[in-house]
Design a protein around this nucleic acid. Structure first.
Length: 495
RNA sequence: GGGCCGUUAGCUCAGCCGGUUAGAGCUCCGGACUUUUAAUCCGGGAGUCCAGGGUUCGAAUCCCUGACGGCCCA
């Protein structure tokens, strides 16, 4: 007998068989709906405003997933859900006649199409009175529990579709992500930037300090890498005379996974000729606040226990000054790595052996400063040894014209006046290559890209460049504490 | 990399100072019911207790190892 033997799936198989035996196709090729659920309900309310609670619409055809069923014998109430909302359907044996048999073979999770007028039940719910109803697709497995929803975080991430079915908040979160990305694109296009696409498979993984994923092209018999940044290709386009370019694309970094790191993530990079890092700073605060306004209607956003105010202008402070304030260490006082490491150890900050000075400052900032930067803040004037692609400050070659933007205790933006002197760029790359040889293996360094240097030798105008983590921006704007909540399919260990 | 917590029915969970046949709600199956909506009422099913090893007369329960997940720290 169906339902016995511990197999809930069997009853669905049996219903599938019954549907077919009555000549009903459980997976028809198409169904034409006349309205989305939201549009149909809006349509009903428009009529209701004129004629009151006795309103009835013309027949509409709606389609969606069955999310609840209440069988009453010769009548059945159920709700279907589409991307715009959900609506109740009333199936009546006296109206549907033989077609009412379908009610018996419907399960939660099935897709149903129904045609009929909308009316108001005596409990005041907008309801479609079905004159026709047909199954559009059978679901062979039960959906998540209806009352508690899906709370197993692992299933939420591994089977995101179940998470989306079960949780309107999750659906709304990813809809917001799309709005945010669209608003970023719109903002940049409005400023005259054009969107481009550059290679993901690259011969040299340069443009950032990170480990790449390696792969191999068989026909060319050549090792290739997944890009870790789009920077050097976008600068080639600046050389080529495309004065304002941006790319929103996936980059790949072969490193650990945690609350705000996924091995593949979405990075915005933009480059603007005849601009410098101060212009970019102004653009970032304008962009984030206008995107927040467009997506959320406000620039003041709750994040965990805090409220973040993205209204420009954001606080600006030099990296040196803020690091001194937060950690008590003035890194300018320690021109060599060993002395800085000692000072950091004295403050209880664990340091790896043989780290470079740049790496140590990065560590000092990420552990001692970054977590404290809840309100939007630009840290400016970075040491040259941790910024191989940025232009030095006139009058102080130990610093570069660079800033990073922080909010909610996370880095969200990184920008500089781009280094465009090919000889200087070559020697900076050489320093990075040297660092890789002399420091511990965990230290990430940039890589020399000969083909990029060739481009620079052809001349690149003064340029302001920006990198911004889109996932983290979405986390901030949607109040999500983990990158896994804003990436549809986050990387997980193999089961 | 370290620490803590978790993994039991399709889902959400209880049970865990060892003890006979592992429970509840929702889901599922059968029945009643034509305005219900966590529908209701009656009846009935449903398990590799994460995996492997160990202790014991006896293990979901205690011990060890591992897998996966979560949180915290580095």
């Amino acid at each position: 007998m169906v339902g016995q033997g511990g197999d809930l799936l069997l009853s669905r198989r049996e219903k599938l068989r019954r549907l077919r035996s009555r000549g009903t196709e459980p997976f028809p090729n198409t169904y034409r709906r006349t309205h989305t659920i939201r549009d149909a309900i809006d349509c009903f309310h428009a009529i209701e405003r004129e004629v009151g609670s006795q309103a009835r619409t013309e027949a509409v055809s709606l389609a969606g997933r069955v999310v609840s069923i209440r069988g009453m014998g010769r009548a059945t109430f159920l709700n279907i859900q589409d991307a715009t909302g959900d609506v109740q359907i009333h199936l009546r044996r006296d109206i549907l006649q033989d077609e009412y048999e379908l009610a018996r073979d419907l399960d939660l999770g099935d897709f149903l199409g129904a045609r009929g007028p909308l009316f108001l039940t005596r409990t005041g719910e907008v309801t479609l009175e079905a004159a026709e109803a047909s199954i559009l697709a059978k679901s062979m497995r039960p959906p998540p529990e209806k009352w508690h929803g899906l709370s197993d975080v692992e299933i939420r991430h591994r089977q995101r579709y179940l998470d989306l079915i079960a949780s309107p908040e999750v659906r709304e979160g990813f809809r917001l992500r799309s709005t945010i990305v669209g608003a970023v694109r719109c903002f940049l296009e409005g400023r005259g930037f054009i969107e481009v696409e550059t290679p993901i498979l690259v011969p040299v993984a340069a443009g950032a300090m990170a480990q790449p994923f390696a792969t191999h092209h068989n026909a060319l018999d050549r090792d290739l890498y997944l890009r870790i940044a789009t920077e050097l290709y976008l600068k080639r386009l600046i050389v080529g005379g495309m004065d304002k370019v941006f790319e929103i694309g996936r980059v790949f970094r072969n490193e650990g996974i945690d609350q705000d790191h996924n091995p593949e993530f979405t990075l915005l990079e933009s480059y603007e000729a005849y601009a410098d890092y101060n212009d970019v700073m102004e653009m970032v605060e304008q962009m984030v606040s206008s995107v927040a306004l467009e997506a959320l209607g406000t620039t003041v956003i709750p994040f965990g226990e805090e409220t973040i105010d993205f209204t420009p202008p954001w606080r600006r402070v030099s990296l040196r000054e803020e690091t001194l304030r937060c950690t008590g260490i003035d890194f300018q006082q320690y021109p060599d790595a060993a002395a800085l490491a000692e000072a950091m150890s004295a403050k209880g900050i664990h340091v790896e052996g043989r780290s470079s000075r740049g790496r140590l400052i990065d560590k000092l900032v990420s552990t001692g400063v970054e977590p404290q930067l809840v309100q939007p803040t630009f840290l400016t004037e970075y040491p040259v040894e941790m910024s191989p692609l940025a232009k030095q400050k006139p009058g102080d070659p130990s610093l570069v014209e660079r800033f990073e933007g922080f909010a909610g205790g996370m880095e969200i933006a990184n920008a500089f006046s781009e280094l465009n002197d090919p000889d200087e760029q070559r020697s900076r790359f050489m320093e990075q290559e040297e660092l890789r040889r002399t420091t511990n293996a965990e230290e990430d360094t940039d890589r020399l890209d000969e083909d990029f240097l060739l481009a620079l030798e052809h001349g690149m105008p003064p340029t302001g460049g920006l990198g911004m983590g889109i996932d983290r921006l979405v986390m901030l704007l949607t109040g999500k504490p983990s990158i896994r909540e804003v990436v549809l399919f986050p990387q997980l260990k193999e089961r």
